[in-house]
Amino acid sequence: MPVLELVNISKTFGTKTVVQSTNFSIQKGEVVSIIGPSGAGKSSLLRMINLLEVPSSGQIVIDSQPVEYKLNRASHLTFLSKFKLSKVRSKVGMVFQHFNLWEHKSVLDNIIEGPVNVNKKSKREAIRHAEELLARVGLLEKKDDYPGMLSGGQQQRVAITRALAMEPSVLLFDEPTSSLDPELVGEVLQMMTQLAEEGMTMIVVTHEMRFARQVSDRVLYMEEGRIVAEGTPEEIFESKDNARLNRFFSSLHG
């Protein structure tokens, strides 16, 4: 049974269609990488999963529950829908390219914010869990620091920890290493690899081909708003007969 299903999802901005009637589903414990050229619609697709971007049409199903929401005339979520989506969103973790940690909160407060205020955990329990997660990635001694005092790699690992603290059904990553200095990419990829091995369900939009190839169970290749190739890493990376893929891979090396 899929953890998450997108049925016939489309997204248009004005007259421009950036995601075209796309179907997608992911099983528990699966790791799916989404690759493709800039502007292909990878971020748009990912962001529709937790309604950061509202689909123009189609259906999202999470844990077998269709996600319900209403739009106002300006095609924004209605105020009420934003309240109702809280539950769904708490089940879907999101990691951003620019970390997006709350600058006015310490590392620990960033991590317990959701568990305490959304999942209604006791503060003590949330802190215990947060400290355990931080210790696992060697960031416990940073718990009272503010995000601005950390390196990019540390910030991203805190951001991943913040998402994990919610105990989500699925974790979404949108180019989690793209804004990092090259020497900091490794520590973040290592943490993600570890999560994948522990059985976390993950969807990763990435330009890190090595990660996509070595860690994912399945790779999707997107172009012009469509998934145009899909398969195991071997099928995608070793296929020689797909002209579009060949063009994409050679553009990476060129």
């Binding site: 934003k82 309240f83 989506l85 809280s86 708490s90 997006n100 709350w102 959304v118």
Partner: peptide, 27 residues
Amino acid sequence: IPKGQIEAAEAIGMTPWQILIRIRIPQ
């Protein structure tokens, strides 16, 4: 307020009120 910080709050499931009180106003 950086847009990403609001998105992070939405993504974690905070309600509009919580975002107002806990993220927007302090910032």
